[in-house]
Computed example of a mutant assay.
Amino acid sequence: MFRLLFLLPVILCAAWWLFLNANNIPLKQGRKGFFYIIIFSLFVLGFFTFMVYITNSDL
């Protein structure tokens, strides 16, 4: 599951791009959404990486 986490931003960006195209919104105008998707995906990846680190540590 953890190794497939890279698909999260790919799928979300593809869905955002399809939404923009369906509503005839230029990519330049929807660029901020891509940044939000990347930030959200990095947060999720960081959270899961932290959880793996915490659960595998020798405390």
Rank of each mutant, 00 (worst) to 15 (best):
M1L: 07
M1I: 06
M1W: 10
M1H: 07
F2N: 08
F2K: 05
R3G: 09
R3Y: 12
R3L: 06
R3Q: 14
R3W: 12
L4S: 11
L4H: 14
L4T: 11
F6M: 07
F6N: 07
F6Q: 00
L7K: 05
L7N: 05
P9S: 05
P9W: 01
P9D: 00
V10D: 03
V10M: 10
V10A: 15
I11V: 12
I11N: 01
L12I: 01
A14V: 07
A14K: 00
A14H: 00
A15I: 02
A15Q: 06
A15L: 08
A15K: 02
W16M: 02
W16N: 01
W16H: 10
W17R: 02
W17L: 12
W17P: 01
L18N: 02
L18G: 02
L18I: 03
F19G: 05
F19V: 05
F19S: 06
F19T: 10
L20D: 05
L20E: 11
N21Y: 08
N21W: 02
N21E: 12
N23Y: 09
N23I: 10
N24A: 14
N24T: 12
N24P: 03
I25G: 04
I25P: 01
P26F: 08
P26I: 06
P26H: 12
L27A: 13
L27Y: 08
K28S: 15
K28R: 15
K28L: 11
Q29Y: 04
Q29K: 07
G30L: 00
R31T: 11
K32D: 14
G33M: 13
G33I: 04
G33W: 03
G33H: 09
G33E: 14
F34S: 06
F34W: 07
I37T: 04
I37W: 03
I37E: 00
I37M: 02
I38M: 06
I38L: 13
I38V: 13
I38T: 04
I38N: 01
I39N: 04
I39P: 02
I39C: 14
F40T: 12
F40A: 12
F40Q: 01
S41M: 04
S41C: 11
S41R: 03
L42M: 14
L42D: 02
L42W: 05
L42F: 10
F43Y: 06
V44G: 00
V44M: 07
L45H: 03
L45E: 08
L45V: 08
L45I: 08
G46I: 00
G46L: 04
F47P: 00
F47Q: 07
F47I: 15
F48C: 04
F48H: 06
T49C: 13
T49V: 09
T49N: 09
T49F: 08
T49W: 05
T49Q: 06
T49A: 14
F50A: 10
F50G: 09
F50S: 08
M51S: 12
M51F: 08
M51I: 01
V52L: 05
Y53M: 14
Y53G: 13
I54G: 06
I54N: 10
T55F: 15
N56Q: 11
N56G: 14
N56K: 11
S57H: 07
S57Q: 11
D58C: 15
D58V: 15
D58H: 14
L59F: 13
